[in-house]
Nucleic acid binder design. Structure first.
Length: 139
DNA sequence: GCCAACGTTGGC
DNA sequence: GCCAACGTTGGC
């Protein structure tokens, strides 16, 4: 099956890319939004996931891969929630800011711009490649 | 710090 | 089932 592409958001003050790299990956849990949860559930092993710093930085800083597909979120005491495991793949050489993304005609329609509150979102392959290009990064 | 956008809750 | 009130997220 073809790889899919995703973007996840995290406030670096809570959990940064450096934290993520420092522990060589983590459980992506705590998502409490149905749309975001459904996106987590649609992830397949080895899909690529862009790591975006929200609030502070507001830029795409790294690439992760899906190490383990969705399983019940152990941090959820009630409700039907999911987590995945992500692992760092490589950093973005030149982080791609939200401003750059908004000003790029090829990227102005991605969910990051259209729905700023969604924390786990799908990306089209062409958009994923475009972000990498803007970030001066090759897989 | 403000507020727009969005989701959830609960009264009716 | 509608919608007002409220809470949260995240850009500015």
């Amino acid at each position: 099956m073809a790889k899919k592409y995703w973007l996840v958001k995290q406030e670096p003050e809570a959990y940064s890319w450096d934290d993520f790299v420092g522990e060589n990956g983590c459980e992506w849990d705590g998502v409490r939004n149905y749309q975001a949860r459904n996106n987590l559930r649609a992830m397949s092993q080895d899909d690529f996931v862009l790591f975006y710093h929200s609030v502070i930085g507001k830029e795409v800083v790294g690439i992760a891969t899906v190490e383990r597909e969705a399983y019940p979120d152990p941090t959820a005491t009630k409700g039907d929630w999911s987590a995945v495991d992500l692992r760092p793949f490589k950093p973005i050489n030149r982080p791609v800011s939200l401003e750059t993304i908004k000003n790029d005609p090829q990227l102005s329609e991605i969910p990051l711009v259209r729905n700023s509150r969604l924390s786990v979102m799908p990306l089209e392959a062409k958009h994923f490649r475009r972000v990498l290009k803007l970030g001066n990064t090759i897989l």
